[in-house]
Simulated assay, not measured.
Amino acid sequence: MAIFKSLFIFILAGLLEIGGGYLVWLWLKEDKPWWMGLAGGFILALYGVVATWQTAGFGRVYATYGGIFIVLALIWAWKVDGFKPDRWDIIGAAIALIGACMIIYMPRAR
């Protein structure tokens, strides 16, 4: 159960970071209203809070988050921007995700 809770937190944090960053992107790069940038900044701040809900230390959490973020970013690009990941995108994301899960979930010698 702890792994599922941890994965949920990683996914929530990733969606907040990508969603907030996307709103800032739209504001600055696609001339959307200023309030989108403000909302994006607020959502990005929430991402920083949610990430602290993990029980592991900062370095290990953020290293793991990087691999999970790669997968989420590709899914976001596919579903929101119409970007179609190719096999190399998928293979690279799978490698990153496997490595990320090894970093956070493998048992450690005490």
Score class of each variant (00 low, 15 high):
Ile70Cys: 14
Ala73Asn: 05
Glu30Ser: 13
Thr52Val: 08
Gly40Trp: 04
Gly37Phe: 12
Tyr47Phe: 13
Arg60Asn: 00
Phe10Glu: 04
Met102Ile: 15
Trp88Thr: 11
Met106Phe: 15
Ala51Val: 15
Leu7Gly: 00
Arg110Val: 06
Trp78Glu: 00
Phe69Lys: 06
Ala2Ser: 06
Lys29Pro: 00
Gly20Met: 07
Leu23Ala: 10
Phe83Lys: 02
Asp81Phe: 03
Ala73Gln: 05
Ala93Tyr: 11
Leu74Trp: 05
Ile91Thr: 13
Ile95Leu: 15
Asp81Asn: 13
Ala109Glu: 12
Gly19Lys: 07
Ala39Asp: 01
Leu7Asp: 02
Ile3Val: 15
Gly14Leu: 11
Phe83Ile: 03
Ala56Asp: 14
Leu26Thr: 14
Pro85Cys: 03
Gly92Glu: 07
Val71Gln: 11
Ile104Asn: 09
Trp27Gly: 02
Trp53Ser: 04
Phe69Ser: 01
Ile104Leu: 15
Asp31Arg: 03
Val24Glu: 04
Gly20Asp: 09
Trp34Met: 12
Gly57Met: 00
Leu12Asn: 01
Ile18Trp: 04
Pro85Trp: 07
Leu38Lys: 00
Tyr47Glu: 10
Ile11Cys: 08
Tyr105Ile: 10
Met1Phe: 11
Trp76Pro: 07
Trp88Ile: 11
Tyr22Gln: 13
Phe69Gly: 06
Trp35Cys: 08
Gly14Asn: 13
Val71Arg: 04
Ile3Gly: 06
Asp89Trp: 08
Gly41Val: 10
Pro33Gly: 03
Met36Lys: 00
Met36Gln: 14
Ala63Thr: 13
Phe8Cys: 06
Met1Val: 07
Ile18Leu: 08
Phe58Cys: 01
Pro85Leu: 03
Trp88Leu: 13
Ala77Val: 10
Gly14Met: 05
Leu15Ile: 12
Ile18Phe: 02
Val71Ile: 08
Ala56Thr: 06
Thr52Gln: 03
Leu97Met: 09
Leu15Arg: 01
Tyr65Ser: 07
